[in-house]
Amino acid sequence: MTQFQLIVAGILVAVLVVASAIISKKLAALRNPLQVWDALNNIGLLPIRIRAWIFSTLVGFANPYTRSINFRITELRKGKACGVMKTKKISNPFRCVHAAALITFGETVGALAVFSLLGKKDRAILTNINAEYIKVSRGLLTASSVVDPIKDRESKELVNTVLIKNAAFETVAVLTLTWRTDLMSL
Rank of each mutant, 00 (worst) to 15 (best):
T2Q: 06
Q5C: 09
V8E: 10
A9Q: 12
G10Q: 05
V13Y: 15
A14M: 11
A14N: 09
A14H: 04
L16A: 12
L16C: 07
V17I: 11
V17P: 06
V18C: 00
V18Q: 00
S20R: 14
A21L: 11
I22R: 15
A29V: 08
L30K: 14
L30W: 10
Q35I: 01
Q35K: 14
V36Y: 00
D38A: 13
G44P: 14
L45A: 10
L45E: 00
L46S: 04
P47Q: 10
R49W: 08
W53V: 09
W53G: 00
S56H: 08
S56G: 07
S56Y: 10
L58Q: 05
G60N: 08
A62W: 07
N63V: 04
N63E: 06
N63K: 09
S68W: 12
S68G: 14
I69A: 06
N70P: 14
N70R: 13
N70M: 02
I73T: 13
T74Y: 08
E75K: 15
R77D: 15
G79P: 11
K80Y: 15
C82W: 01
G83D: 00
M85Q: 12
M85V: 00
T87I: 10
K89D: 08
S91H: 10
N92Y: 00
P93Y: 13
R95P: 05
C96W: 03
H98S: 09
A99G: 14
A99N: 10
A99C: 01
A100Y: 10
A101E: 04
I103V: 15
G110W: 08
L112K: 07
A113S: 11
A113F: 02
V114Y: 00
V114W: 01
S116F: 04
L117N: 03
L118A: 01
L118G: 01
G119D: 07
D122E: 06
D122A: 04
D122I: 07
A124I: 15
T127M: 04
N130M: 01
A131G: 12
L140K: 15
V146W: 13
V147E: 01
D148E: 13
D148G: 11
P149I: 05
P149D: 13
K151S: 06
S155L: 02
K156I: 04
E157M: 11
L158S: 02
L158P: 01
L158R: 03
N160K: 06
I164F: 05
I164V: 08
A173W: 11
A173C: 09
A173V: 06
T176C: 01
T176I: 08
T176A: 00
L177C: 08
L177V: 11
T178E: 09
R180W: 02
T181M: 05
D182G: 12
L183W: 13
L183F: 12
L186N: 15
L186T: 15
